[in-house]
Design a protein around this nucleic acid. Structure first.
Length: 855
RNA sequence: GCGGGCGUGCCGGAAUGGUAGACGGAAGCGACUUAAAAUCGCUCGGGUGCAUGCCUGUGCGGGUUCGAGUCCCGCCGCCCGCACCA
């Protein structure tokens, strides 16, 4: 077949770079640091990527979602800021250095260059003038300055503590980075180690971080819930028990309880293996020491899984009960956590399942103290199930007869009177340890001097830059090994001193980058005018995996900076959207090998076989894309083959954006068909006839304006898949419009071009330039507004029901009188047959919707 | 165990208490073509019928209502988060 008769197709490969250049040339997406006072600002931000070297489909989804919002908001009269940067510090760069001999900085900046080019191919409406990487000395220097401000404001503390030590990565992990007792990156069992560390005092902000969740009305409920659980507020009492005999000078032990009402049900006191009293027992008794060692081993490795058994060791120490004066034994127990409360509990077996399990195992007494509502105190006993519900207190001296809440209050009052305890609120949240023994991170800007202690590096000497010449061949922290870098003179006394060789947790870097974007080149961390103008971020978009860590730290930073009058709002992100994962089918041979899609073929029944062997292959539906499962799809290859618009459109059309989406070849191909179809729709209607009012034309105009309203509504609510469906319907309607409607087609084609523009910006420009060769860009146009007059129909189709069952449809004028409507409905043959002469008991008419006869 | 979310065709999914399955994908049939691709048309929850139709149908069982996928009660199943949190 010759070339000439080949049907013309939209050449996305030529068009997309052309429009990207046009946007760039006209500075379409630049925003000022300080917007004019009358501007409606809108700050759209997607979580910035780690520069691994290539973008993946998760990025494509994330940035497509953000770009739709940014472009839509820009078109609806907002001054949009939509920046991009790089979360560029972190371990993979050091691993690359160790394994391949390339410097982390070089590796990182190369990766950034690759990924920037890939992102640019997506046609995102980004303000690239604001770009920075957290490993730029300009950025991390300002972070060092900010850290010193936080120190001065009292948010930072250096303390010795038990830390989670990752023996493979040779670094400290935050609690949040320990998953099932293993390091979140290395997967190695985490060990406990005692180290001197820098901490952000996030616990001081716990009440506000919890309370302010209520103000975040555009956050997903489940994220707020996860944060609330993580912060973990619980009301109770701290109770001090005197030891019957002091141990190594220790005279008492404190416990935290939420159930002071059950104090009379006590039968033992238990401490964690790391508790000082456990140490004391270990010194006296090798068996105790052995038990503690066992607990420690168990605490880190497989324990979490087979957590079943409660085990303990009787120390032989005793405490005196604050109320009844009796003595109770102190045990070391493997289920008591040093990290929570005081690392000690009092055991009330009748009211707590764990305590009960423990008591049964070691034959400790079980005294019921809460009587269920309809139980008889003379014969009520506890079997293998503790009673944790409400009831009446008994067997409990002065608390007898009270309800549980009453007894809690009375017990706390009594404790406070005896100075043996007090009512407190306990938090699960721990302070945030930010020290990491790594090279590729922001150096902590302090100097340790034997004479002066910890001295901040003077601000005029910031940034404390990372040395370039480092050795990654030895395990541990290269900064610590460096021959010269850490040796400096004390800024205060000028004597020989050493730099801090730890660097910050990378979550510090991402805790304020959104604020830095407001004035990314400023010579101070934040400029007040820019930050006040732009923050909070109006729409933040990212993965649910950051629901706790990143989002909580960013909230904490913002709150602290707000208190220091550096940020005007206490919360960084007014709106949060968490997108689902991108998944893909996977193929696994019977012997467990993961096969690439190219290696298999699928027959008509959907049975997959391996091409090489002919053996049947198991198809996994919708598994998270991962290199190990050979089911990743490279965005670059997709854009080569289909173009950015097609990829964007498919990602938006498949399903609601908060759910996981399955990437499928058929789906992308379908989106590509629609791209071509729209292009043809415009081409085949050219040249457009002049506007002319005809009945058919009016109908098309109504369709046009309804589409505008529906798509606008869908975009406002993040229902992008619905927006796509409405656009499909609209395209169908334009294609099917009769010849008499031609006079309304120009308006329809203009509208559909604009409606697709947030989602398929290149195609929109291409179509617009065909429809209006006057040089204007869609990116510069105002969003179309539906004409209310055209949204109202003259006639409406009413469903006619008899006893709630659909029997017919009638077409009536919108403001037809009720009597006429009922008459018309009854005139329908189906309706009269269904009524079958029975008397009509009730007639219902909902205007514009339905008529229902009850017979 | 605690907390949250969700169950709709073959699949993704739509549906202010008011015509369930929009829209898309897959599949099948047909047109065009020497053939294919591309494109266009038709069918597409189940049952029944010559048929305008009729019956049935949104995990299961009840309820409220003229009317329930949607609201209420009780189950079942799946997914996610947290988890010896005292």
């Amino acid at each position: 077949m010759d070339q000439a008769s080949e049907p013309a197709r939209y050449d996305f490969a030529a068009a997309e770079p052309r429009w990207q250049a046009a946007w760039n040339d006209r500075d379409c997406f630049l925003a000022p640091d300080v917007p004019p006072a009358d501007a409606k600002k809108y700050y759209v931000l997607e979580m910035f990527p780690y520069p691994s070297g290539k973008i993946h489909m998760g990025h494509v989804r994330n940035y497509t979602l953000g770009d739709v919002v940014a472009r839509y908001k820009r078109a609806t009269g907002h001054l949009v800021m939509h920046p991009m940067g790089w979360d560029a510090f972190g371990l993979p760069a050091e691993n690359a250095a160790r394994d391949r001999g390339v410097h982390p900085g070089q590796w990182t900046y190369n990766n950034i260059a690759n990924m920037r080019a890939e992102l640019k191919r997506m046609g995102l409406s980004l303000d690239w003038s604001r770009e920075f990487a957290t490993c730029d000395p300009e950025y991390y220097g300002q972070q060092q300055s900010l850290f010193q401000d936080l120190m001065a404001a009292g948010w930072v503390e250096r303390k010795e503590s038990w830390v989670n030590w990752d023996p493979v990565d040779n670094t400290v992990l935050a609690n949040e980075q320990v998953i099932d007792g293993k390091g979140w990156r290395s997967g190695a069992p985490v060990e406990k180690k005692r180290l001197s560390q820098w901490f952000m005092q996030i616990t001081r902000a716990a009440p506000e971080l919890l309370g302010a969740l209520d103000t975040l009305d555009r956050w997903p409920e489940r994220v707020k819930l996860m944060q609330a659980n993580w912060i973990g507020r619980s009301e109770g009492a701290r109770v001090r028990f005197e030891l019957a005999q002091s141990v190594d000078g220790v005279t008492d032990v404190e416990v935290f309880t939420t159930r002071p009402d059950t104090l009379f049900g006590m039968s033992f006191l238990a401490v964690a293996a790391e508790h000082p009293l456990a140490d004391a027992a270990a010194k006296r008794d090798p068996a105790a020491a052995a038990f503690i060692a066992e607990c420690r081993a168990q605490g880190t490795s497989e324990a979490a899984i087979e957590q079943a058994e409660k085990r303990g060791f009787d120390t032989g120490f005793f405490v005196k009960h604050p109320f009844n004066g009796q003595e109770y034994p102190i045990w070391i127990a493997n289920f008591v956590l040093m990290e929570y409360g005081t690392g000690a509990i009092f055991g009330c077996p009748s009211g707590d399942q764990r305590d009960l399990d423990f008591a049964r195992k070691y034959d400790l007494p079980v005294l019921p103290v809460v009587l269920p509502p309809d139980a008889d105190p003379r014969d009520f006993t506890i079997g293998d199930v503790a009673y944790t519900d409400d009831g009446t207190i008994f067997n409990s001296g002065f608390l007898n007869g009270k309800t549980v809440p009453e007894a809690k209050r009375a017990a706390i009052d009594a404790l406070e009177q005896k100075r043996a305890g007090k009512g407190i609120v306990n938090w699960r949240l721990r302070d945030w340890g930010v020290s990491r023994q790594r090279y590729w991170g922001c150096p902590i800007p302090v100097i340790h001097c034997d004479a002066c202690g910890v001295v901040p590096v003077p601000k005029d000497q910031l940034p404390v830059k990372l040395p370039e010449d480092v050795d990654f061949s030895r395990p541990g922290n290269p900064l610590d090994h460096h021959p010269t870098w850490k040796h400096v003179n004390c800024p205060q006394c000028s004597r020989a001193a050493v730099r801090e060789t730890d660097t910050f947790d990378t979550f510090v870097d991402s805790s304020w980058y959104f604020a830095r974007f407001c004035s990314p080149r400023a010579t101070v961390p934040l400029t007040k005018a820019a930050v006040e103008a732009w923050l909070p971020v109006d729409q933040y978009i990212g993965g649910i995996e950051h629901a706790i860590l990143h989002l909580l730290y960013a909230r904490f930073f913002t709150r602290a900076l707000h208190g220091m009058d550096k940020v005007a709002t206490p919360e960084p992100f007014a709106g949060l959207f968490t997108q689902g994962m991108v998944t893909h089918a996977s193929y696994r041979a019977a012997d467990g090998r993961w096969l690439y899609p190219e290696e298999i073929s699928v027959d008509a029944e959907g049975v997959a076989t391996e091409k090489a062997t002919g053996a049947v292959v198991a198809i996994g539906r919708g598994e998270k894309m991962s290199k190990s499962k050979n089911n990743t799809v490279d965005p670059g290859a997709i854009i080569d083959r289909y173009g950015a618009d097609t990829a964007r459109w498919f990602i938006l059309s498949d399903n609601p954006p908060e759910r996981d989406m399955e990437w499928s070849e058929a789906g992308v191909a379908g989106s590509q068909r629609f791209v071509q179809r729209l292009w043809r729709l415009v081409q085949t209607n050219l040249p457009l006839p002049a506007a002319e009012e005809t009945p058919a034309g009016r109908k098309l105009r109504q369709t046009t304006h309804r589409a505008i309203a529906a798509v606008t509504q869908a975009l406002e609510t993040f229902a992008f898949n619905v927006a796509v469906a409405r656009i499909h319907e609209f395209a169908n309607a334009i294609a099917e419009a009769p010849a008499e409607a031609a006079g309304a087609k120009a308006e329809a084609l203009d509208a559909i071009t604009q409606l697709i523009s947030p989602m398929m910006p290149h195609l929109a420009e291409e179509l617009w330039s065909t429809l209006h060769p006057d040089g204007k860009l869609v990116a510069e146009l105002d969003w179309p507004v539906a004409d209310p007059a055209l949204l109202k129909a003259e006639t409406v189709t009413l469903a006619v029901q008899v006893n709630g069952k659909l029997r017919s449809n009638i077409e009536v004028a919108v403001n037809e009188g009720e009597d006429a409507i009922f008459a018309a409905a009854l005139a329908e043959e189906n309706v009269s047959r269904a009524i079958d002469g029975k008397p009509i008991r009730k007639r219902i008419h909902v205007r514009g919707r339905i008529v229902n006869f009850v017979v």
